[in-house]
Amino acid sequence: MFELVSTRHNPMIDPGLHVWGYEIPLYLFLGGFVAGIMVLFGVALFRGREAQRFSVYSDLPLVGLVCLSLGMLALFLDLEHKLHVWRLYVTFEPWSPMSWGAWILLLVYPVLLAGVLLSPPAPALWFVPGLEKLSSRWKADRSKVRWLGVASVASGIALGIYTGILLSSLGARPLWSSALLGPLFLVSGLSAGAAFAHLTAKDPKESEGLARADNAFLIAELALIALFLIGLMSAGEAQAQAAGLLLGGPFTAAFWTLVVGVGIVTPLVIQTLVLTHRIVHTRVAPLLVLLGGLALRFVVVYAGQYSHWPRG
């Protein structure tokens, strides 16, 4: 046993690191969510789903566009030196996930935009003459559509994984030092995307398919969370202590109730019951999934900042 006294008293650093508030978790959630949407949309393009009228898929790109912009707004709001934000785009730092992220976000925009042009929202059609003609000419060209699908899936996966890598690259925070954070955030993003589509789908067939997909993602997410924790426990003192934050520390309650309970297990159960027609279809499950996805980002970001190397 020993007594440790430090005279340092820096804001956001002491007594425990807390540099990121709600903005970053929100940004990471929206990023992952958009990633999920893009993957789904991309796949749908392959399956020629966007062709049919009233498909939920046709709305996804616009939703993605909006959410991505909200995410970037959140990121911007977090910056302490806002006027300098343009500095992100006068350089590319190959070792900095943030730099990667900044550029990926730029690549994602045109893809989403193209998606929107493919099946533009009604108001746009009124205001922009010739838009209708353009989009239908596109729809006609299958290869273009497929390429868009590929681009959408690819950039979606990149975006989703990036949101996790952003944290796991910060080795000073043991909770984040896991290669599984990227996949975990991606899958969570996919389930959130599916959940949203599920939520807004009008065609019962579609929503059933989405529920099925969502369940798959949720199961995968559970598995990744398990692996993530096991990995930490076996990675060393610092990581084990960090895992302790979720397994019997300040963040345990939030993690197990909100993220696992409310966000994964409950909707999983509900949707299984719906799919096996034991209960009628409900929109509660997808709502919970979205909530859980948000909670995951909050818990991981907050607990992760708090985690540190053993002091001595």
Partner: peptide
């Protein structure tokens, strides 16, 4: 002059 205040470096330093 180049810093945007993203705080990644704060989080990345094991010594705070």
């Amino acid at each position: 002059k180049e810093c945007i205040g993203c705080k990644a470096c704060l989080a990345s330093c094991p010594y705070d």
